[in-house]
Amino acid sequence: MHALNLQAKPLSLAERLADLAVDALIDEADLSPKPALVDRRGNGAHTDLHLGLMHASALALWPAFKEMVEAALNIGEVGLPLREAIGRIGREGEQAMLATTNGVNTHRGAIWALGLLVTAAALQPKFIALCAARLALLDDCYAPKPLSHGAQVAQRYGARGAREEAQLGFPSVLQRGLPQLHKSRANGHGEQNARLDALLAIMTELADTCVLYRAGEPGLHAMQRGAQAVLDAGGSASLSGRRRLHELDQQLIALNASPGGAADLLAATLLLDRIERDGIVQGAY
């Protein structure tokens, strides 16, 4: 066959959604300057993470996201068979992630959030978050029972952890992240600033269990108040907002408080935004 006649094979829906999930994770990691998080400037409040590791971790999760979508298409409905299937795939994806990162937890929370969303997008493209919530409410009897750090902190402080956030239909994404992303874009703030503002909007009210685990309630209050101060000053596109953002970054690093939960929800925000903008579905969420 002549080389000029070669055409790229169209991507399947599973491949397209897996691509978007990985893109969302990489876009979140690259976004700079994020307060106390890994980005293009450095490691934030982390000693075991860096940007290259975040990229490698995201790429290692592509097969798991693809397999989740395929499971949704094969099973065809929300129910225990699908919940148990994506639970198994997610645990296998986590092992692939840990093998890539030499045991460092880079994206455990993101596997849960983005895995639910790509699965739901294959089933209910008009109501992705609602479908994801229905899946999250089902109990996977095969899931291991030991409490994660996030679950322990959620119990101690009465905070809503990643599981509850999904079960409620991702309110931090739909009520704060996406509206702020759209608002900042409409105001001409530029894409990177709009994404930073979306992260900050999520941080203003989220009881981030990563922050609570690392810095307790003082760290959480510093995160929430500081994020609101940036937005009140005009957001990350303004000079005053950038000054507040730098202050928040330094304060959270000093407290060893890295808002990893908010970062996962920003990735979920970017995923839902990209699913609609790329034309896979219209009027999603």
Rank of each mutant, 00 (worst) to 15 (best):
E67F: 00
A29R: 05
L255M: 15
R91G: 06
K66V: 01
R40S: 09
K126H: 13
Q251L: 15
G90C: 08
E67M: 00
A122V: 13
N105R: 09
W62K: 15
R41N: 14
N43G: 11
P179R: 02
A60L: 05
T269V: 11
V38E: 03
L147K: 09
I89R: 03
T119I: 11
P144W: 01
Y213N: 15
R244C: 11
T209M: 05
C131A: 15
Q180P: 05
L252G: 03
H149R: 12
K66S: 12
A36G: 06
S236P: 15
L117D: 00
D48M: 02
R91H: 05
K66G: 02
I275S: 05
M97G: 04
A3H: 15
D278N: 03
L245E: 11
S32V: 11
A233I: 09
P259K: 03
L138T: 06
A154K: 02
R244K: 14
S184L: 04
A263T: 09
E70L: 11
V173N: 06
A257F: 03
L82I: 04
Q282S: 14
S172R: 06
P179D: 02
W112L: 05
L11A: 15
W112A: 01
L51C: 03
Q251W: 06
V281W: 08
I86V: 14
I253A: 07
L11T: 13
P81H: 08
G190K: 08
A96Y: 02
L168R: 14
G158S: 07
D19V: 06
L6P: 00
L147Q: 09
L245Y: 10
A194W: 02
C141Y: 12
D30C: 12
K145S: 13
A254W: 02
A186Q: 14
A207S: 10
L37H: 09
N193K: 10
E77S: 14
M1Q: 12
I128G: 06
Q175V: 06
L174G: 04
L98D: 02
Y285L: 13
P125L: 01
L196R: 12
H246Y: 10
E67C: 00
C141S: 14
L80I: 14
V38K: 04
A136H: 00
K34L: 05
A96V: 04
L181I: 10
S148C: 07
V281K: 03
L117W: 00
G241C: 01
I75M: 01
N105Q: 12
A21G: 10
D23R: 14
E165D: 08
L272M: 10
G93V: 03
L20H: 03
G87W: 09
E67K: 05
E247C: 02
H149F: 04
R160H: 13
L199Y: 10
Q175M: 12
M203T: 07
V38S: 03
Q192D: 15
Q175W: 08
A60N: 05
A3E: 14
L168M: 14
L116S: 00
R225M: 10
H182N: 11
E28H: 04
A151G: 02
T106H: 07
G190N: 10
A36E: 07
E191D: 15
G169L: 04
I253L: 10
A215P: 09
G235W: 01
R16L: 12
V104K: 04
D23H: 10
N43W: 06
R214H: 11
A71S: 11
G190Y: 08
R40K: 13
Q155L: 13
